[in-house]
C-alpha cells in the first residue's frame, strides 16, 4: 500500500526509522512476543516449583485441591475465554474503523476482568477465613500433611501473580479506551490494541493451565 505513497503521505504514527506502517507494526509485535517469552519463563519458575513439589507429594496435592472451589475456577475460566474473544473483537473493530464497537468491546473486556477479580476475591476471602494461608500463617487443620502450607504458598504465588497480571491488564485496557474514545485507532494504526490483546491472551493461557493443575487434581 505504502509503495507509491510519497513522504507527504507519511502518517503521524509512523516513526521515521521504519519503512512503512506494516514494518513498524510487525516490529512492535515481534517485540511483544519476545516480552511474552520472558513472561512464560517468569511463570515457568513457579510451575517448576509446582511440578517438583507435586512429584514429591502427590497425596498432598490431591487432598489440598479438594479445598479449592471447582465451580468458581470453571466460571473464571469461562470469563477469561469470553474476555479474550471481546478483546480480539476490539482489534477487529479497529481494523474495520468502527470506533463505537472498539469502545464496547474494550469496555466488556474490562468488565469481564473485574468479574474475574471479584470471583477471585471471594475465593481468597473464604480461604483466608479458614486459615488456608501460605507458609507460616497457615492455621487450617483439615489436611493431614505436614507440608500443607507449601501447597498454599504455591497456590497463592501462582494465582496471585496471575491476578496482578489481570489488574495490570485492566489498567492497560482502560488506557486503550481513553485513546479509542479520542479516535486514535483506525485500520492503518491499531498497534497498541493488538499488543495489549496479545498480553491479555497470554494471561488467559496461563489460567487455562492453572485451572486443571490447581483445581482438578484427583
Amino acid at each position: 500500500m505504502a509503495n507509491n505513497s510519497g513522504a507527504a503521505e507519511k502518517e503521524a504514527h509512523l516513526a521515521h526509522h521504519f519503512v512503512d506502517s506494516e514494518q513498524q507494526f510487525e516490529a512492535s509485535k515481534l517485540g511483544m512476543w519476545v516480552f511474552l517469552v520472558t513472561e512464560i519463563l517468569f511463570f515457568g519458575g513457579l510451575f517448576v516449583a509446582y511440578i517438583v513439589y507435586r512429584s514429591w507429594h502427590p497425596d498432598l496435592f490431591e487432598q489440598a485441591a479438594m479445598t479449592l472451589d471447582t465451580t468458581l475456577g470453571a466460571v473464571n475460566t469461562g470469563v477469561l475465554i469470553v474476555s479474550s474473544l471481546t478483546i480480539v473483537l476490539a482489534v477487529r473493530a479497529a481494523q474495520i474503523n468502527d470506533q463505537r464497537q472498539q469502545l464496547i468491546m474494550l469496555g466488556s473486556t474490562i468488565a469481564l476482568a473485574i468479574t474475574f477479580m471479584v470471583v477471585k476475591y471471594f475465593e481468597y476471602a473464604s480461604k483466608f477465613e479458614a486459615g488456608m494461608l501460605p507458609a507460616g500463617l497457615y492455621t487450617y487443620e483439615g489436611i493431614e500433611h505436614e507440608l500443607a502450607p507449601v501447597f498454599y504458598s504455591i497456590y497463592y504465588m501462582l494465582t496471585g501473580l496471575h491476578g496482578i497480571h489481570v489488574i495490570i491488564g485492566i489498567g492497560l485496557i482502560s488506557w486503550l479506551m481513553v485513546n479509542a474514545a479520542k479516535g486514535t485507532y483506525h485500520s492503518g494504526y491499531f498497534t497498541p490494541i493488538e499488543i495489549v490483546a496479545l498480553y491479555w491472551h497470554l494471561v488467559d493461557i496461563i489460567w487455562i493451565f492453572l485451572f486443571p493443575l490447581l483445581y482438578l487434581i484427583e
Binding site: W33, V37, L41, G44
Partner: peptide, 14 residues
C-alpha cells in the same frame, strides 16, 4: 518460533 523457543527453554529448565 519465538514462542516455541520459550517452551524449549522451559522444558530444559524443568
Amino acid at each position: 518460533l519465538v514462542l516455541l523457543s520459550s517452551l524449549l527453554f522451559f522444558l530444559i529448565m524443568i
